[in-house]
């Protein structure tokens, strides 16, 4: 005869050696309330080797009685969730150590970049001063014009500047960078402008083509339909967008 079998959840572990508590739940029909209710029973189960962790789902099998309350042993793991959790915990710790080192490195890199910019700005100031002196002929007796010119050329070579004062930008500002990088982002940025244009009488025909049979629908629905049409980059707009 086959031994008695159950599938249950490990609810407590580590409190007794070689023993875990496994919860078995089964449905029982209650005649008084006319519906099924869940009944639970906890078993003490023999776990030779202490491998189970809380949260594992295991199959247990009856064995000859070991002690007063222990007459089951673990037969098989259905889901070893609890053991996985312990693994994840160890993994996370090593990952965070690496990230901390990356953080410190980025801190150092930023410091270097900052120092670089500061030296560049001070060099630019020096360049301004020297070129002013050269132009207006203000010079100390000790320094020749040639020395000044050499110094200016050194700085120019360092930052790849052709002439001073220049019209090209030497220090790039973040403010001057464009907000959008591709066509879709550009259309999102100018969405209000495009909708306004399409609502003009000029593009009445165009708008009705986009909407098709939905011309009589509510204003907000029309707007959403037009939005989805505009965000598709393959559809060409009838007018040019501002730069």
């Amino acid at each position: 005869m086959a031994r008695q079998n159950f599938v249950g959840l490990v609810v407590s572990q580590g409190k007794m050696s070689k023993t875990v508590k496994v919860r078995i739940s089964n449905k029982v029909y209650d005649n008084r309330i006319d519906k099924e209710i869940v009944k639970r029973k906890d078993y003490l189960v023999h776990d030779e080797g202490n491998v189970c962790k809380e949260g594992d789902i295991v199959r247990i099998e009856s064995i000859p009685k070991i002690s007063k309350r222990k007459y089951f042993a673990i037969a098989e793991f259905k889901q070893n969730k609890g053991q996985q959790f312990a693994q994840y915990e160890d993994l996370a710790k090593s990952r965070i150590k690496e990230e901390q080192q990356l953080f410190l490195e980025s801190f150092k890199n930023h410091k270097m970049e900052f120092n670089k910019i500061i030296t560049q700005i001070s060099d630019m100031k020096k360049l301004d001063e020297l070129s002013y002196k050269l132009r207006n002929g203000i010079n100390d007796d000790s320094v020749n014009d040639e020395v000044l010119i050499n110094e200016i050329n050194d700085i120019k070579a360092k930052y790849n500047i052709n002439s001073w004062p220049t019209t090209e930008s030497t220090l790039e500002l973040e403010v001057n960078k464009p907000v959008y990088t591709n066509e879709e982002e550009k259309r999102v940025f100018f969405m209000d402008f495009i909708l306004e244009q399409l609502n003009n009488e000029k593009f009445q025909q165009y708008k009705s083509n986009i909407l098709g049979g939905n011309v009589d629908k509510k204003k907000n629905i029309q707007k959403n339909l037009m939005r989805t049409w505009i965000l598709n980059v393959n559809n060409e707009l009838p007018f040019k967008l501002p730069e």
């Binding site: 050696s17 070689k18 023999h46 030779e48 080797g49 202490n50 491998v51 099998e61 064995i63 000859p64 009685k65 070991i66 042993a73 673990i74 037969a75 098989e76 793991f77």
Partner: peptide, 23 residues
């Protein structure tokens, strides 16, 4: 017969990974 079985019963699966907790 039954008493003999009760001692040192092993898991059906995963028998290789077993290590006793106390040396």
């Amino acid at each position: 017969h039954t008493r003999l079985l009760s001692n040192g019963r092993r898991l059906l699966n995963n028998t290789t990974n077993l290590k006793p907790a106390i040396p």
